[in-house]
Simulated assay, not measured.
Amino acid sequence: MNRILIVDDEESILKALRRLLTLTPCKVGDKIYKFTVDSFASPEAALEKARHTPYDLVLSDYRMPRMDGVAFLKAFRELQPECARLILSGYADLNGLIGAINEAGISRFLSKPWNDYELLAAIGQALALRELTMENQRLADLARLSMGQVSPEEIERKRLEAEEPGITSVIWGPDGSVMIDESLLDDGDQGKL
């Protein structure tokens, strides 16, 4: 099951995309992708969720009121660089497209209204490319490990960070102790500290 994040300021778009992606599996070659979808109307809320939830693909609207798609995907890329990134837009803006490719590293720019088949094909292709890229990185890390250029601990840290974003970020106290960021805890956990 692949986890997808959708960000669009229009609730009707979010509902339509969520319905399409949860009901329609995507096939690329012999591989079938099924999706778990999280959707947000606010890019800021989506970024907050992405700090602790790993995604395989993010699909963002280009024009949103508080933060455009390029700025959102650029910030998202900082959190989860291996995640595939796509932009969906009703506007054909060449400068925006160039910014999305150069700054946010998107793999595809899709237009609204979308064709369901083309959207699913683009998502499947992006996920297949992501899998191939991650396998190449894994093999390169093993080669670097065998040559002594990287330690097993560094490889494990990278793996853990990909599975659980933010897990390797530690806040150190002035005395060398590990500090807990209480804002990241569930309400029920805060009373247990």
Results as ranks from 00 to 15, higher is better:
2 N>G: 00
4 I>C: 06
7 V>F: 00
9 D>N: 13
10 E>S: 08
15 K>F: 13
18 R>A: 10
20 L>V: 04
27 K>F: 04
28 V>Y: 13
31 K>Q: 14
32 I>H: 07
34 K>Q: 15
38 D>L: 12
39 S>W: 12
41 A>V: 04
42 S>D: 09
46 A>G: 02
47 L>I: 04
52 H>T: 15
55 Y>A: 06
56 D>R: 10
66 R>Q: 13
66 R>S: 14
72 F>Y: 06
78 E>R: 11
78 E>Y: 02
80 Q>A: 11
81 P>Q: 11
83 C>P: 02
84 A>I: 02
93 D>S: 08
94 L>T: 09
96 G>E: 05
97 L>E: 12
108 R>I: 00
110 L>T: 05
111 S>C: 07
115 N>P: 00
119 L>Q: 05
121 A>S: 13
122 A>W: 02
122 A>G: 01
123 I>N: 03
129 L>R: 12
130 R>V: 03
133 T>M: 09
135 E>V: 04
137 Q>W: 06
139 L>T: 09
144 R>S: 11
149 Q>D: 13
150 V>C: 05
150 V>H: 08
152 P>Q: 12
153 E>M: 06
155 I>K: 04
157 R>C: 07
160 L>V: 02
160 L>K: 12
163 E>V: 06
164 E>H: 14
166 G>V: 08
167 I>F: 07
167 I>C: 15
168 T>P: 00
170 V>M: 07
177 S>V: 04
178 V>P: 01
179 M>V: 11
181 D>G: 04
187 D>F: 08
189 D>V: 09
